[in-house]
Simulated scan of single mutants.
Amino acid sequence: MDPLSITAGVVGIATPAVHCIRLLLEDIQKIVDAPEALKSLRNDLLSVDQALVSLQAVSEAQWQSLGDAVLAQSKTATTSCGESCDRFRATLGRWTRHSDDGKLSLRDRAMVGFLKQGHVKSMSEQLQHCKLTLTSVVCTATLHSSLQQKRATEEIIVAISKQEADIADSIATTEKQLAEVNTKLGALCMAKQEENETEADRTSAISQVAIEQTVLGESRKLLQELLSGIHTAAENAQKDNAHVVNNFGGQKKGMQIGANYGTISGITFGR
């Protein structure tokens, strides 16, 4: 993996996504009387923005330790998140087209705060999962870096085991959400167009859930790749920690231990 391509790749995947997130965040913040659903979405956007900033701080050496597959999948997941925010921003503009000066009209308030709650919830879940996935990448990169800098200590081994369990839990959660989204998408495609619902609104609702389905699938692949890497790291750390080296001098008696990392018992000192 070329270090220059790593740097360009990380900057390239994070910067456009951060830009899309901040534009959507600005639009929501301009709505002074925003419904609770949009206020909650604003918090999700801030969390993902912070996760992307952390991703940008991952060093070239850390990306190399994670491998090409994780870098490529991180790029795909991050790009999808940014594109999803861009689409949602366009949809929000359509929902609030009857409003002025940051105050929602009664018609637009009903649209955003009641009729489109499912759409907003789907976007919120995408953002939460994006944050979870990116945070897993950053944490795993940090652990790999710790292993490369020094010999595996008990503390590092515990941290690796915890990260391994956390990623496994995230995969299980992702698979459950993916099953739910598959069911939701099927129901939306089969449902009849509601009263006062335009064809554009119907298409947008289906598209939003389809994007969520794609994002979850991409996140699952990335998490599985991370789990494989952290599992290998855990095995290597355990082997390293179990290693014992004894260097004996010329004497044939007495206690002589070069390096010991296990429990010593059954030893009596003196006569």
Results as ranks from 00 to 15, higher is better:
2 D>M: 05
14 A>C: 13
15 T>Q: 12
15 T>M: 09
24 L>W: 04
34 A>R: 12
39 K>C: 14
41 L>K: 06
45 L>Q: 03
45 L>P: 06
48 V>D: 01
57 A>K: 05
59 S>W: 03
60 E>W: 00
62 Q>F: 01
62 Q>H: 02
66 L>P: 02
72 A>M: 05
80 S>L: 15
80 S>K: 07
83 E>C: 12
90 A>V: 08
94 R>T: 03
100 D>H: 04
100 D>P: 01
101 D>I: 07
102 G>V: 07
105 S>T: 00
108 D>K: 04
111 M>H: 02
118 G>D: 10
119 H>L: 15
122 S>W: 07
122 S>C: 13
123 M>F: 11
124 S>A: 13
138 V>T: 14
144 H>I: 00
146 S>A: 14
148 Q>G: 13
151 R>P: 13
157 I>S: 08
167 I>Q: 06
168 A>M: 09
173 T>L: 14
174 T>D: 14
174 T>V: 12
175 E>N: 15
181 V>P: 06
183 T>A: 12
183 T>C: 05
184 K>W: 04
184 K>P: 05
193 Q>D: 03
198 T>L: 01
200 A>D: 02
206 I>F: 00
212 E>Y: 10
225 E>P: 01
241 N>P: 03
241 N>E: 13
245 V>K: 14
248 F>R: 12
248 F>W: 07
248 F>A: 09
250 G>M: 10
255 M>E: 06
269 F>A: 07
